[in-house]
């Protein structure tokens, strides 16, 4: 817009409008109120979020665990991918000042979480995550283990209906949830197919690859308390825990629990999972309590 020179008296007259300004309207009830505690937006049931229990999504659980390792205080907010700035959960919203002082908030997407947590937490005796070994073993977790997890959760027919459908695609209307589940299944399929360029998903092969990965991870842990001989658990421990804990706790269907059996073979991984659970998620379900797996159907 062209700015015309405005006579001084008109300008001061203008500036006197509005004649009266009241304090701001208070926000409606549903709007989140932030204290100084950062909020981790993650996949979680509302009950688990309140109790501080583990999320049912591996990447959310990984960061939950990592936050706890570093002693960062946070609260979990149940959310979904639509809410995230990157399109993927989790992310953190933190506010330095209280709400009344400023509405400025900081949104930390998942790819910046590691440095944010390390900056805000206490100092730990962990190994360098940039080391070649950690990188290589992270690939095992993020590829082989993740593919098998996705296959077991989304593409095994019974699991997808009873686990993925309930956890991720829950809606009060069954048509909507089945549409969402179909979308999720297609996405999971697409994801797993990346590693199998022939376009054929052979569950035996997927589970065998994951089994071999677990074997290698277990060998790597050996008799150590934490991976790679760290004095405190680090990001790799969090990554492994996120999968092992969920694989052990989900109520897989009998016959579709290959992944569960694969984890059960490695005592040191079970011990690792238990150590982290006891130390950081004391309220979480224990795998033993869930022993009769998938037998409800």
């Amino acid at each position: 817009m062209v700015s015309l020179p405005i006579p001084q008296f008109l300008k001061s007259l203008f500036d006197s409008f509005p004649l009266r300004t009241y304090p701001a309207n208070p926000l409606p009830s549903r709007c989140p109120k932030f204290g100084t505690t950062p909020s981790l937006y993650a996949f979680a049931t509302p009950e688990d979020a309140v109790a501080g229990n583990p999320s049912f999504n591996p990447s959310c659980l990984k960061w939950q665990a990592y936050l706890k390792f570093y002693g960062v205080e946070f609260k979990t907010v149940p959310s979904n991918n639509h809410a995230s700035p990157t399109g993927a959960l989790p992310f953190i919203i933190s506010q330095q000042k209280s709400m009344s002082e400023s509405m400025e908030v900081e949104v930390v997407p998942s790819d910046k979480l590691a440095s944010w947590i390390e900056e805000h937490g206490c100092s730990l005796d962990v190994i360098d995550t940039d080391s070649a070994q950690v990188k290589a073993f992270l690939v095992l977790v993020n590829n082989q283990l993740r593919d098998a997890w996705l296959y077991a959760l989304y593409l095994e027919p019974n699991n997808s209906q009873d686990l993925a459908g309930k956890l991720y695609c829950g809606s009060s209307v069954s048509a909507v949830s089945s549409f969402l589940l179909r979308q999720a299944k297609a996405a999971a399929r697409q994801q797993v197919l990346q590693a199998y360029p022939g376009g054929v998903l052979d569950p035996r092969r997927i589970y065998a690859d994951a089994g071999a990965a677990l074997e290698a991870i277990s060998t790597m842990l050996g008799k150590d308390t934490w991976f790679f001989g760290g004095g405190d658990p680090g990001l790799f421990d969090a990554s492994v825990f996120a999968y092992t804990h969920l694989i052990l706790n989900l109520r897989w269907h009998t016959g579709e629990n290959t992944l569960f059996r694969a984890v059960m073979e490695h005592d040191n991984l079970l011990g690792h999972e238990r150590r982290i659970r006891d130390a950081f998620f004391p309220e979480a379900n224990t795998p033993d309590a869930n022993k009769p797996l998938g037998s409800e159907s």
Binding site: C31, F34, S79, H82, A83, I93, V173
Partner: peptide, 27 residues
């Protein structure tokens, strides 16, 4: 009966919008 999805949030979307993002069904 309508299935609503709040999505495509802008980078600077407020926590209020983030809190309500996702699916809901109105009947």
């Amino acid at each position: 009966g309508v299935w609503r999805q709040i999505t495509g949030l802008a980078e600077g979307a407020s926590p209020v919008v983030r809190g309500d993002a996702g699916d809901s069904v109105k009947s």
